[in-house]
Design a protein around this nucleic acid. Sequence first.
DNA 1: TTAATTTATTGAACTTGTTCAATCTTTTTG
DNA 2: CAAAAAGATTGAACAAGTTCAATAAATTAA
Lengths: 193, 193
Amino acid sequence: MTELIKKNIIKHIALSEEETEAFCSLFQQKLIGKKSFLLRAGEICRFEGFVNKGLFRVYHIDQNGFEQILYFAAENWWITDIDSFTNGMPSQLYIEAIEDSEVLLISKKDKEFAYTNLPKIEKLFRVMTQKTHVALQRRMIDNLSKTADQRYLDFIEKYPELFQRLSNLQIAAYLGISHEFLSKIRKKIAGQK
Amino acid sequence: MTELIKKNIIKHIALSEEETEAFCSLFQQKLIGKKSFLLRAGEICRFEGFVNKGLFRVYHIDQNGFEQILYFAAENWWITDIDSFTNGMPSQLYIEAIEDSEVLLISKKDKEFAYTNLPKIEKLFRVMTQKTHVALQRRMIDNLSKTADQRYLDFIEKYPELFQRLSNLQIAAYLGISHEFLSKIRKKIAGQK
DNA sequence: TTAATTTATTGAACTTGTTCAATCTTTTTG
DNA sequence: CAAAAAGATTGAACAAGTTCAATAAATTAA
């Protein structure tokens, strides 16, 4: 059950077998069906999660009822609303399973416990937060500088396996365009080949 | 010289006077004139910096020669290219002083030293990275969901003091629009009052 | 204090992306 | 399997934002 998360951790930092085991024992498994929610806007996010199986989307719904997808999380990715989780504020985000999924969850209390008793865990989350920050920074630059066509092509190239598992509605919400326009982009690209 | 950074640190984590002093002694002051660069694309970012005085812009130049401003950093803000700094890769970013400025710089080696010898510093940077990540996540959502008019108004409301110190060229590059279009937005807004 | 440079404004033509409504295809569910 | 629901495509009219070129205003430098 915890092989994947163990591999994920030791990819980031050096940790002994005992430390890894101690940390992983703090997680609880949760099964979550397609279209079910791990978190809804308005709730306080009380967990940090690791996706063992399945696929999630993390999104926001704006005043006009439009979805913006912040990111997708498939196997081997972490999910949380870091804002709500760390500040104890109501979340602005929805975390929804796109496929039948399995996550490992750690509570805030147990995470604090880990920070105190397994000091290297502090480094683990610093390093992971840095990495996700770098990724978001790159996406921000791309969104500011690239056209929707290019962002779509980049997406396919960067996440080919994700691309297979997602509807165009979801990809459009991630790219920040209407699904009708995505449809037109797809047609244009198909014609070019 | 280090009053501001000390205040900044203790705002994030609890640290004794000695620890604070020990950490701050690792920084070196650097004066940097308006229009000078702290970092250029292609260089490896070997520092993390704290702005004591002045104002910087951190930006990327895309294939078409357009600037995208990732963020501004005035007094009390931290600056680095976290991607280049942590991974030792050539930077894609420019960090340029918009005003005559003063920064406190710490080298990678000294930061590693701090992580090892002052364990709480690990927490400091985890917490700070989390905060900047949350801010970027909010900006990402805003960029995906809001119109340029609204983003401009939000910017003025959120950073009124920064707004005073920046040219419209720079604000446009931050908002991700042409400065001509910003000019038209400004006209429209002025007419509404 | 000019001259030079940078910044800001404006208009016209254009491109990118949206909206809405209709139709078709695919997937899900009873 | 049939019916319903969700997803995908298309076209036409529209809105948002860009580009280019010209001009004006403000800063900077000699």
